[in-house]
């Protein structure tokens, strides 16, 4: 039975669907936690400590990483198969039907943008937080300055978004994420088979609204920290340090 996850087209799509929904769930939690940083540095750092180099957080990180890796490997695998299925000769004239969403035909390109962003994002945060603790636990050399800030997520946010370039890159990646999710959410449910004529447009709209809420949540946090840092307003966190 388990072979169908690799051997049949619908099985492979199911893997994309399940990992995709898992990642949407993760993004939703991630966005909610980010909003805490706007309110309270202490609260945010408490979350960072909870999700630091503890065994349960490490297990969570491993599961999350597996979700990303499987989703990405399958994406490339499916794309290679799908390009081959088109045949050797390409159409000379291609005109996209008006009912077809642009995002649905460019999921891999959007994914690659986000993959590049993921590298940058891990460098900005994970490599300065959980990774430092892990290196230290493994007996590696870590400078005390870096070690002090491994659970000071608030400090890293302020640092990252004081740069307009970082802010812009993050917003570009989030725009790609919106397009990716606007197709990904309903497509995932369609693949599982959770769809019918009545719910077709409803599920599409739930997906778009969900994508908008998640992406807006991230952007609000980024923009507020950028404005606060760039213009030296010092109003964040709103509930005081």
């Amino acid at each position: 039975m388990s072979l169908f996850l690799t051997q049949s087209s619908i099985g492979r799509k199911l893997v994309m669907s399940i990992t995709g929904l898992f990642l949407i769930l993760f993004l939703t939690f991630h966005m909610c936690m980010n909003l805490v940083a706007i309110l309270s540095a202490e609260g945010y750092n408490a979350i960072c400590e909870f999700l630091g180099a503890n065994w349960y957080a490490l297990v969570g990180t491993a599961v999350l990483a597996a979700g990303f890796i499987i989703h990405i490997i399958y994406a490339f695998w499916l794309t290679v198969q799908n390009r081959a299925a088109r045949g050797a000769d390409r159409y000379a004239v291609v005109d996209k039907p008006k009912d077809v969403e642009w995002a649905s035909q460019n999921m891999l390109a959007l994914g690659i943008i986000m993959l590049a962003f993921l590298g940058l994002h891990l460098y900005h945060f994970w490599s300065k937080m959980q990774l430092v603790d892990l290196i230290e636990m493994a007996g590696g050399d870590v400078c005390s300055q870096a070690l002090e800030n491994t659970t000071n997520g608030f400090y890293h946010i302020v640092n990252t978004f004081s740069s307009p370039i970082n802010t812009l890159l993050y917003i570009i990646a989030l725009a790609a994420l919106w397009f990716h999710l606007s197709h990904g959410f309903w497509s995932a449910l369609q693949t599982i088979g959770f769809n019918n004529t009545t719910w077709f447009d409803r599920i599409k709209w739930i997906g778009r609204i969900w994508a908008t809420i998640v992406v807006l949540g991230f952007i609000v946090t980024i923009v507020m920290f950028f404005l606060d840092g760039f213009f030296g307003l010092n109003i964040l966190p709103l509930l005081g340090a």
Binding site: I10, K13, Q81, P97, Q190, I192, G193
Partner: peptide, 30 residues
């Protein structure tokens, strides 16, 4: 190939076969 739910098929279908059939096939198969 593997369906990625772009919906180009239903948009071009001369008989307007609905995409909800694909959801039903997925359900039946899974």
């Amino acid at each position: 190939g593997n369906c990625t739910n772009t919906g180009a098929c239903a948009a071009e279908c001369p008989k307007s076969i609905s995409l909800s059939n694909i959801a039903r096939l997925n359900r039946e198969f899974l």
